[in-house]
Design a protein around this nucleic acid. Structure first.
Lengths: 239, 239
DNA sequence: TAAATAGTGTCTTTAAGACATTATTCC
DNA sequence: GGAATAATGTCTTAAAGACACTATTTA
């Protein structure tokens, strides 16, 4: 019987028909009170010219995992790393890509648009699209419309029991801005008092000492404490 | 400039180094008050003889998605479909499989062991292993120990806000049995009253009319209503 | 001082936790 | 009747909802 070393020496990838593997990201931000997603106009076949999610193939030399692929592709388009990145789900099937049986591991990401605006202005093929306008964009590449829908669903759920929406904002923000993102995501008003209670009990934030001028009473400016990542509440907001 | 039809005609998979793609499942059940996971002794290289998760390669002719692959492989080992199946996450990297850069989409599944016991008895390479014994099983194939840990984490979380643990039981069960699974998963006692409140308000279950004899007062026997799937509570159990 | 926005106080509501009590069955 | 298990009643607690109120800034 063959031993493992012999097996590996004789092993040739490609004996089985390969699955086409990609990695795509759904990157959200908030612009003008509107939840937006970063879309890229495809520069190659197939579906050249279609709007789709930023992503692409794994580079086996540089990527230690699909998360690295996602980050690499996002940095290409935005110039900076997203403030939040987590795996969403893997979408697969025979018909989702015309080249054959394929699979994409999708990531879910958040960033403050201010952070990457300079870079996106230069990359003419990338654009922030308000999620409400997606319905009017047709076609959309592959199954990316469905992937975005799943990502939105996940974002909504996480908004109910965590502070993730804060990663749609810049480094510094006011409570009213945070409330704005949350309400844009949930598409309904929330109780500011409930938000304040969570904001404080999370201990994820600290005052910068600065005040934001809004035309009336000035608002305290906060930032995320270094090294804090996430905190889940044991109860949902907006019952 | 080439059009899409030309591009697809000329397209050859294999121009890029392929990623090795597999699908694996973490199937849980409850046996003797203990949470167990289905493990299979590997019959092929690499890592022949190691215990690992049931899974394998996608069959592009028969599988419409990785979920089909997961189901196909589980049915091979258990003879029946799991009562619950959902995608867990995709694990990837250069070193997780000695054959090269690889990726596995892992599924998370639940079943009552009674349902598949006859088949598992025949498949000599499959075994239910109590999760507490996993620490003593070394080696475990690939990164499957880590995948199981992530699945357990997910099961624990879902137990706090849903009725999923019920899918670890057979078709018919008592409240005390359900409480048992939950306590085995959370590794701590819960308030039966809280469980009863959730059980009723979920409207996921119905009485069978039967009673279970336990040696003292008999317990009502319930079953899941047809077509009910899941329900998430807006608040966690076991503060 | 009025309007606008920021932030607080406090009562109500909801659903879980704690645990005592009642019910049923077998011996 | 007593032990064991099943099921219910009810008071307490934690955290969100509702909303009135105070505070600060600019016009």
């Amino acid at each position: 019987m063959q031993n493992e070393a012999d097996y590996l020496r004789d092993y040739r990838a490609g004996d089985f028909p390969a699955v086409l593997v990609t990695v795509d990201s759904v990157l959200f931000t908030l612009i003008d009170e509107k939840l937006c997603v970063l879309m890229v106009q495809r520069a190659n076949h197939p579906q050249l010219g279609y709007w789709g999610l930023p992503g692409g193939f794994i580079d086996q030399r540089t990527d230690a995992s699909t998360q690295d692929t996602a980050l690499r592709k996002l940095v290409e388009k935005c110039g900076v790393k997203p403030a939040w990145l987590e795996q969403l789900a893997t979408f697969s099937g025979r018909d989702r890509d015309p080249r054959g049986w394929s699979l994409t591991t999708a990531y879910f990401a958040l960033i403050g648009w201010q952070t990457c605006q300079p870079h996106i202005r230069d990359v003419s093929d990338a654009r922030w699209i308000p999620v409400e306008e997606l319905a009017h964009i047709d076609p959309i590449a592959f199954d990316h419309r469905e992937i975005i829908a799943v990502a939105r669903e996940r974002l909504e759920q996480k908004t109910l029991y965590s502070m993730v929406p804060v990663y749609c904002l810049g480094e510094e923000f006011t409570l009213t801005e945070l409330q704005g993102v949350i309400e844009a995501i949930l598409q309904k008003p929330i109780q500011r008092k409930s938000l304040v209670r969570r904001f404080e009990s999370s201990e994820m934030f600290e005052e910068t000492g600065k005040m934001a001028v809004t035309g009336a009473r000035q608002a305290k400016v906060y930032r995320r404490k270094a090294g804090v990542d996430g905190l889940n509440f044991s109860r949902n907001l907006g019952g």
